[in-house]
Design a protein around this nucleic acid. Structure first.
Lengths: 213, 213, 213, 213
DNA sequence: TATGAATGAGTATTCATTCAT
DNA sequence: GATGAATGAATACTCATTCAT
């Protein structure tokens, strides 16, 4: 069905020489896809296996658990967010510009299966230890975002009162893309993200002296 | 466990005089709570029943299905959004003020179990006919929100380019509250909502002539 | 739905003065209908109640059990068979004629809900004591039928070797009507029964000197 | 309990080498047994599993559904009827002889679990699509039987007026064996079938010139 | 008498997970 | 490395039955 979306290293025909790591990644990608689409509980390992042209037990060769898969997916997604965070924003002049650039990259990550599944799936689906780890990473990301806001406050390019809540609001607004995106494939993504960010940067209220973006 | 959260008309001791409607509402409230907490699939009717001090089949006396419960929850949640929409915003002068007032009430609804479960649970959990009904109502709400934005545009109190995407962004930002709210009970709700709305109204970028809210 | 088939003494409107016996009969008739249509296990008391415009617990005022209803139905059905057995066949001259007349009446009973449910439903659905009672009555009926065959043998009007098995075959052939009758409502009943009996009397093989019926 | 009736390829001790097809057949045989004994609704998959020394979910490895099991049972039963139909009756001289031979084989099939469950269980237990398929096959079998009767009419070896109803009566008489057979294990089967067929061929009425079978 | 309300027992079904091969 | 086969645990749902009113 969606078999085309993910390319499987098993391929039914025997190119079966790939290294374990590669296959593990393929499993992860397939899992991310299914998790992103259905959420954790509605996602079935049968479907993951089917996408990969593999049988279910095979998945257990690469992951201990369904939960381990979810954990790896989220971890990977968070990694994407973090690596994007430290992206090529050096050239940007001030805090607001750096934040804006970051938000764009953040939105791009959300478009991916890993991003969507990271954003959509609640930590509470995981066991306490895993959940704790994830929350730790998430709060680091939060902190980074908050820091960007604070930086902007410091250099006067951003004017808000509470950086923490602002960070939540920013993330929340962008995260929401993960939820309706796949149902509403008509809306052009790029334009949407730009509009989102424009709103967040400029606000609803009209500006007398347009210092637009 | 969470037995305290919901007050049950059964109460083990037989004050069994309540009308069916009341009990049905209690079932609904319990279901909304469990759905909001766990999502649809992870929610078990056993837990709903336990909260109410009732056995599972009793639930079927009031609802045909698990799905029927979810449908009623979402319908009820949407009803709350809609009735709030037509709230006391008459006094507000311009479009932006009316929109702001609306967003505040919207955020209040999200705080409730019904609101949270309406926002958190994807339509795709429902059967096609039910899903269609829900989507219809949701798009009406969307339209109302969009209309508020457009009104503001018309009277010059709101400056955005695309009212539709703006509406999505506004809703998305507020909806995100439903996802972390219960995990992070430290943050003060009112302040959070105010900050959210302040951000959305004024944007990140500082305003030269502060015409604050 | 099938509410029209059975006339209910409750009638929603209050002619509620009938005697218990009458109502009990109505319950029985409704039960027989549902049993005949669906078999014992697929038959639900909800449907019986619905037909009667009554609630389920009411049925328990007239019968102890679902099983008691079935027992009564079968008992009643068997009673019909037996009373028909002793019908106006006195005028018939010989054993074959009396048997033929009996088979016709037997077939008529099978057409009724009681007959159908008596024939369709296996004794093994009942508890041992009830089942035993029913089997006793059934074997009496068998014996009567067998006797009719034997009588015919005695007066030379019937030529078979084993009256018992013959009786089973006769009953079996007619009973089969109960199974396809309601699905195939096109076939004319009378003609069918006549044809059945003609076959049983004359056999497949052509007769040189047609001493028809 | 009835564990002895069906031999299970699982056998608790692991001779686990059998092919899937074999096991699937074993499941089917067990299901047929339980269906034949209890009817569809009273039959529980627990019992099927118990007979096979297997857990219930295992059954789902071989069949999608309880209904799928029933469908396969009936289909298999019908297949038996059809393959018997085209049995070694070539040597038979005339239509009546061919029909008689067919009826004997038909009766033999009815003795089996598949035959009994095919005959005992109403199509209406199946979903519409399945039911339709079954009805189609059944009517083919009916047609074959009818054709045999008609052939006999044509060559003068059978004298009846309506071949269709005659076919129904013949099948009905034999089918009835499926209903009392297991309750009355004393009666000798072969003799019973012979007697049935003798009755159907020669009729009750004595023949002046005995052209017996 | 009749009913609303509730329940216990049973049943089909799903799915993550294991294990021998 | 991969799979066929099997399972345990959970879960939604049905239905006959009871009981207070």
């Amino acid at each position: 069905m969606r078999g085309g979306v993910i390319s499987s290293p098993w391929k039914k025909s025997p190119e079966r020489k790939q290294e374990r790591a590669l296959k593990r990644e393929a499993v992860l990608a397939a899992a991310a896809h299914v998790f992103a689409e259905n959420g954790y509980h509605r996602a079935s390992l049968d479907e993951v296996a089917r996408i990969l042209n593999v049988t279910k037990p095979t998945l257990y060769y690469y992951f201990k658990n369904k939960e381990a898969m979810l954990f790896a997916c989220i971890e990977h997604g968070l990694e994407m967010f973090r690596s994007e965070a430290s992206g090529p924003s050096a050239k940007a002049k001030n805090g607001l510009q750096r934040l804006t650039a970051y938000l764009k990259r953040y939105a791009a990550v959300i478009e991916s299966d890993f991003g969507r599944c990271t954003v959509r799936i609640s930590d509470s689906e995981l066991s306490e230890p895993s959940s704790r780890k994830i929350r730790r990473i998430k709060s680091e990301i939060d902190r980074e975002l908050r820091q960007l806001v604070a930086d902007g406050q410091a250099d006067g390019s951003i004017a808000v009162t509470d950086p923490q809540i602002t960070a939540l609001a920013l993330a929340g607004a962008l995260n929401s893309i993960a939820f309706w995106r796949h149902q509403d494939p008509d809306l052009p993504v790029d334009k949407t993200v730009d509009e989102y960010i424009h709103l967040l940067v400029n606000g609803l209220a009209p500006r007398t002296s347009q210092a637009r973006k």
